[in-house]
């Protein structure tokens, strides 16, 4: 099986964030591989180690983002594809899905794996948009993958229970970070990643034009950011367990009136 995993470089969301004049400002400029994408890479590696095959990764981003391709190669992916985009400002999920569509139309693959969402925007749209553009069967929010001959068996987390879905290849799957813990690249992996091939594509080489993407495909825009409204802290009690329980039951009954 040939996997191609779509990966994205994102800011480290665990770093402190401030908002200045409606714009985000982060204490750290540290950029990382999107955690959900890292799980998709990991699962593709596990399946190819077991059943044979190869894992490519593709990333859209500036030159600096190639470090994230190297990270995936160090984990064990075989080859990288870098779609060069120095300034992605103003592009939405639909635009990224269109760029990936143009890329995949020139590739051969059995399974496209992507993170279920990006940890910076949490939109979770690009995967199913791409599957629709490529007319592929897909499953979202996978928490486990298995291969049976030419079928990818996806365990997906649904609203109630987990749904087992058989997808004939070629297909697409969006991955949760709950399915595995991505491996930390070994020193050997890091050394060998430097010799692995990374091919670069331009918008031009994919037959795309950024201006027409911005005018024809993009339909949503992020205007500004603001702080999450905080809940008012309520009442806090300390004491022995019996006293605490008596206080709580009284408040739930007579003040909040929820029991």
């Amino acid at each position: 099986m040939k996997f191609i995993v779509c990966i994205k470089q994102v800011p480290d969301v665990s770093a402190p964030i401030q908002i200045r004049n409606g714009e985000l400002s982060m204490d750290s400029d540290r950029m990382v591989i999107n955690a959900y994408d890292a799980s998709a890479v990991e699962e593709a590696l596990v399946l190819t180690e077991k059943h044979g095959g190869s894992v490519d990764v593709v990333l859209i981003g500036p030159d600096k983002a190639k470090e994230t391709i190297r990270k995936a190669l160090a984990m064990g992916a075989d080859a990288g594809h870098h779609i060069a985009l120095e300034d992605g400002a103003g592009l939405d999920s639909a635009a990224y899905a269109s760029i990936l569509k143009a890329f995949f139309e020139k590739q051969s693959y059995d399974i496209i794996a992507v993170g279920k969402q990006s940890q910076d925007t949490d939109a979770g749209l690009a995967g199913s948009m791409l599957a629709t553009h490529l007319n592929l069967p897909y499953a979202a929010n996978a928490v486990g993958l298995e291969l049976e001959d030419k079928t990818l068996v996806v365990k997906r987390q649904g609203d109630t229970g987990q749904e087992m879905i058989g997808l004939p290849t070629p297909c697409l799957v969006t991955c949760s970070n709950d399915m595995n813990n991505p491996r930390i690249p070994s020193l050997k992996g890091i050394m060998s990643s430097k010799k692995k091939p990374v091919e670069t594509y331009t918008m031009d080489s994919l037959g795309l034009d950024l201006n027409s993407l911005r005018s024809d495909v993009v339909k949503t825009n992020t205007q500004s950011y603001k702080n999450m409204p905080a809940r008012e802290p309520g009442k806090k009690f300390d004491g022995d367990a019996e006293e605490l329980v008596g206080t709580l039951v009284n408040l739930l009954q007579n003040e909040a009136k929820v029991i």
């Binding site: 800011p11 925007t121 825009n221 992020t222 950011y225 603001k226």
Partner: peptide, 15 residues
């Protein structure tokens, strides 16, 4: 929309 691990809200428009 909550973004950045739900630390902030983004103001968005769609047309």
């Amino acid at each position: 929309r909550p973004v950045m691990a739900a630390k902030v809200l983004s103001q968005n428009t769609a047309t």
